[in-house]
Design a protein around this nucleic acid. Sequence first.
DNA 1: CTTCGCGTTAACTAATTGGTTAAACCATTT
DNA 2: AAATGGTTTAACCAATTAGTTAACGCGAAG
Lengths: 202, 202
Amino acid sequence: MDQSQNTEERITAAAKEIFIQRGFAGARMQDIADKAGINKAMLHYYFRSKEKLFEVIFDEAFGTLMPRVQAILSSDKSVIEKFEDFADQYIALISEHPHVPLFVVHELSQDPDRFVEKIRSKGHFPKLSLFIAQLQQEVDQGRLRPYNPVHLMMNVLSMCIFPFVAKPMLKAVTQMDETTWNLLMQNRSEEVKRFLKQALIP
Amino acid sequence: MDQSQNTEERITAAAKEIFIQRGFAGARMQDIADKAGINKAMLHYYFRSKEKLFEVIFDEAFGTLMPRVQAILSSDKSVIEKFEDFADQYIALISEHPHVPLFVVHELSQDPDRFVEKIRSKGHFPKLSLFIAQLQQEVDQGRLRPYNPVHLMMNVLSMCIFPFVAKPMLKAVTQMDETTWNLLMQNRSEEVKRFLKQALIP
DNA sequence: CTTCGCGTTAACTAATTGGTTAAACCATTT
DNA sequence: AAATGGTTTAACCAATTAGTTAACGCGAAG
């Protein structure tokens, strides 16, 4: 780990790597300390416990995923433009943090209830109602084919996020190598956008 | 656990629940023994080690996911019919085992290389080349809009699987309750099929 | 009835792991 | 230069956990 950072930053950087790679249960405090290049006691000095440290990392991980959604959905563009923005920006975002979605999804599934209150308190609930209203309006105007708004959003989210979550499985099953995979992912947002437009525009 | 089964079945049934719920690192042998209603030593008597037991469970989980793909893709139907079959059957299958996909994807991401050989040896590689050829052919005949076949398959897989993988996150973010979720999922395959057809048929 | 052997159990071991402590370190203040 | 107080370290502790062992139960074979 970069010696130029202060201890706290070194710890969070190391913890981020270890937790995101191995999950809470699989992460070892000693490994985090080693990666940060410090004594294990320092972890507790700065963060008290494994759980407290984990919460910091989880919050940051979740915080990188959610606000972007809100920003895109609340612009003044049309539904299709918003979906296109979403595909572009979200796939680019995840490409930079490819392990974050699986980490978040896995830890959230370990104890769903524990996180609901936190998510709400941090303001990570995107205001979907406005967007759904807009969606309904464009359907009524005949500018979109009629779909259930929730299913439609799931479709977009799925196509943007799932390939990264399932990368090891998809690579294994299709016997793709890393280079082929990277080339494929470079085209991902264009393909998703084309697919979406064909499905959406009457 | 059901007392009527023999010990080995009781162990695998209990291990399946614990491993799929908590992952390898989060699972405790004692918890598996408790759930099976037997002594912890029996786990080692029947399966030698945690890893050996885990492999049995993982293989079974992976084995419930993959063969279905192969069966659907190698029928003699058209691409669109195959995708429709896939959406119907796969969403129904996952609905019965909703935690399996996240389990498989998470464990596979812990150590991707370890599983490639196993997957190959068990014959879980679907023969995609034939299906891709069929896809190309139908595109050339103008029966399908032109898409990259791999991206297209990713789109279908994503829309069928991701909602189950991300259920806790989606429920949290949309503030859906369990009943609403279940109703939504009952319509999932119909919505996916409609969406797919609109995107695919020229 | 005794013996044999598989299945089972309670108790135990060794290693791991999260967490603690007391002393050392070191820059700043007095 | 002595005192101060935040930071860091090595050693330690207690709990957990995968795995082992030796004895027990009990039906089947002799």
